[in-house]
């Protein structure tokens, strides 16, 4: 058996390397592309995204308006381009706060164990059993509609996944040889935890955060679609889909293009997560 395994490993290496690099490159290209679109939106967008031109209402895609115009006569392409700013921001901030809170809580629970861990794990059970859209909707209603409320809601719900990941890593790592060696050298707990364990434990969370960004992006769009996120007339893809839904029979382009934009951005994050996970050897 040993031989077959070693042979597989030897022949498998190149394959594995390749299968990680391709999605990574595609992912980075897509995300980089959107980032450029967001940064240079004022230069790239042919029209003002909120300018209403009554003369060109509900026009199908043409040379002048490649993605058509909506019921207010706004240029859909320009709105998709400007929307990249908002939706990239949603994906980033929706993840960052959850990541920071979850990593901190997970490190503490995993390192100290005992009753701290017990209490935190029960809290995690509660949040996990909670239908998170219910939590998110009520938080947004309490704080008032808008992106700020959305970020608070995402942080309050999203930290759980990171806490679980980091905690599980810590439970394994804290008994590893090098952690024991570090403690025996007389370093403080805090130092061992954050200087020695965290860098090792955090890789999995970073990969996960990329796929989490997809979920956050979809949630942000869904919340805006329900009218609780980004408010009109600001150009955001979820809001655009909601606005176009009523005109679906006479203007398919108003809903189709912002949706495709979401799919493309989400694919960028997914590919990056796949590629990173494969190359770093992180199982999701």
């Amino acid at each position: 058996m040993n031989i077959s395994r070693s042979v597989n490993a030897r022949f498998g290496w190149r394959l594995k390397f390749n299968s990680g690099v391709v999605p990574l490159i595609i992912g980075i290209s897509i995300l980089g592309g959107w980032l450029l679109v967001a940064i240079f939106a004022p230069l790239l967008a042919p029209y003002d995204p909120i300018f209403q031109d009554a003369a060109v209402r509900l026009k199908p895609p043409s040379m002048a308006h490649p993605f058509g115009t909506d019921n207010f006569g706004r240029d859909v392409l320009s709105r998709v381009i400007w929307g990249a700013r908002i939706d990239l921001q949603i994906a980033t901030f929706g993840v960052v706060f959850a990541f920071v809170i979850g990593t901190t809580v997970g490190s503490i629970a995993g390192y100290y164990g005992g009753w701290v861990d017990m209490v935190l794990m029960r809290l995690i059970d509660v949040v996990l059993a909670f239908p998170f859209l219910v939590l998110m909707l009520t938080i947004i209603v309490i704080l008032g509609p808008g992106l700020g409320s959305f970020y608070v809601a995402m942080a309050l719900v999203g930290w759980v996944s990171y806490a679980r990941l980091i905690r599980a890593q810590f439970l394994v790592l804290k008994n590893s040889d090098f952690a024991i060696a570090a403690v025996s050298l007389g370093y403080s707990h805090k130092r061992v935890m954050f200087r020695h364990l965290l860098p090792n434990a955090i890789l999995g969370s970073i990969v996960f955060s990329m796929s989490d960004a997809v979920l956050v992006l979809l949630n942000g769009a869904a919340i805006s679609y329900l009218g609780l996120g980004v408010q009109p007339p600001t150009a955001e893809w979820g809001t655009m889909i909601a606005e176009g839904q009523g005109f679906i029979t006479i203007g398919w382009w108003i809903t189709t293009f912002p949706g495709l934009a979401i799919v493309l951005l989400a694919m960028g994050f997914s590919m990056l997560a796949d590629g990173l996970g494969e190359i770093l050897g992180v199982r999701q």
Partner: peptide
């Protein structure tokens, strides 16, 4: 399946309505 992960369900619903219903 990678692309499918990034499909907003509400948008997919509208697209299906557009195709199959309308």
């Amino acid at each position: 399946s990678t692309a499918g992960l990034g499909f907003p369900a509400f948008w997919l619903a509208i697209m299906l309505i557009l195709l199959f219903s309308i």
